[in-house]
């Protein structure tokens, strides 16, 4: 007790401030960090369960219209990517209607391969056995 009394007032004040900062800011931040970390690992596991891609499980790469177009043209006859309002892109995919399953596989892996979200609407039009699929993509920030 005497030792405590002999501590300088400023030292005591700094100690009290330290304690307050610890209780009000540091500990809640730590708790939040560990909660978020746990939640993050759960989300990673959930995403893994949604991932049925064959081969290496690569992280989603940032969306780039030209790269996306070139990649998609490996599977389809023709792909057009047009920038539209609200930082979104209109994507037109031309394919033989017999290759609709390829499109479905492409669609299932879309947000795993690219950091994009798809507007909840797909438009199909068929002319002379060529299917035109129109969809709106929005890159994830």
């Amino acid at each position: 007790m005497n030792k405590l009394k002999s501590i300088a007032p400023m030292t005591k004040l700094w100690f009290v401030i330290s304690l307050l900062v610890l209780l009000v800011w540091v500990i809640p931040t730590m708790v939040s960090y560990y909660k978020n970390q746990k939640s993050y690992h759960q989300k990673v596991e959930l995403l893994d369960s949604l991932d049925h891609r064959a081969g290496a499980q690569l992280e989603a790469k940032p969306f780039h219209s030209e790269v996306f177009r070139l990649d998609a043209e490996n599977y389809f006859d023709k792909v057009e990517v047009t920038s539209i309002e609200n930082d979104a892109y209109r994507v037109l995919i031309y394919l033989d209607k017999s290759k609709i399953d390829t499109f479905h596989t492409f669609l299932k892996d879309l947000s795993l391969n690219y950091a994009v979200s798809l507007k909840d609407e797909i438009l199909y039009e068929e002319k002379n056995s060529t299917l035109t699929v129109t969809m709106i993509l929005k890159p994830l920030s």
Partner: peptide, 13 residues
């Protein structure tokens, strides 16, 4: 990011 990606992926599926 993961949350948004999961929502997008579930929607795509």
């Amino acid at each position: 990011k993961k949350k948004v990606q999961i929502t997008a992926q579930q929607n795509n599926l």
